[in-house]
Amino acid sequence: MLVIGLLAFVAQQINPTNPFASWVNPDANRLTGPALRDLIISGLNLGVMYGLIALGYSMVYGVLGFINFAHGEVFMVAVMSSWITSEKLFEAGLWEDFFIPSLLLTVMIAIVVSTTTAVVMERIAYRPLRGSPRLIPLITSIGVSFFLQNVAIGLFGPGAKRYPQLPEWLTARRTLLWIPGVEVEGTKILVLVVAGVSMAMLWYYVERTKTGKAMRAVAEDKEIAALMGIDVDKTIVRTFAIGGAMAGVAGILWGLLFRSVVATTGFLPGIKAFTAAVVGGVGNLGGSMAGGVSLGTAESLGPLLLLEPMGVKGPTQLKDAVAFVLLIAVLLFKPSGLFGERLSAEDRT
């Protein structure tokens, strides 16, 4: 809500008068139009990536009713594997000469690896715990998260890994949607587009296909779904796989945007993404994406729009705090999230 308010506020300030020209707040924050534009775009970028990761949390929570803490590490695995692939392609000289095929190959490998990770994780760590008290799988997932993070450190070392350069035509600033003044780096546009397309495909898959229907049925009531002839185990695996694939997409976007990865890359985005899922309403796919965007923009705009006028020194240091305050506020005033939860019968309280 805070964010919707913020966005409305910004839009109101921007649109009626002079779009992104030189909107200057006379008070404290001295934010110019281009500054706001950059903040909003980067907030949206972060937001859609949070949203993509959040889908995994949300779907798993919807089906199994627990927070899969290790989902952030699935994302990290995707970033790592896309780094390895792109690095190797770069070494072979293919990255620069055949950028698009290389990129597609990288995307495919990242998605396959992250999906596999999610499925293996479900098989080994979570399936034996079906039906145990709900804190048990949650604690297990914290363990899995630690484990994967430290496996990455053990295998690849703790240092930061760099992605190869992207071609000039991709990173150059372009005008977004032909709105004058809204010039954005190509990569950032790509992030938004890819995220939108993946989201649409997921929506189609879940809402319009038979397997998607099975998934929703399992989320609604496992026992009845089983009675209806749905293979519950298979559907749960599928849920994990799709969550993993979405995290894979987010991972490759993250890689393209920030071009750097460390073993702990997944931890904070993972927590933020769950926060996003809760903010948007757990189990609600659109809500996850909206929650992600709210969180991303809140993090990006919040410190400078809210904290700085309050006289906080070094406000951006507290941007994570802003994100968590948003979570707390949403849960206090609207415990089922901004867009409402969709949970199985036994999880609704």
Partner: peptide
């Protein structure tokens, strides 16, 4: 790493 593995193993 051991903490993580131990936590999972204990839970299972």
């Amino acid at each position: 790493l051991i903490y993580g593995a131990l936590l999972v193993w204990m839970m299972l």
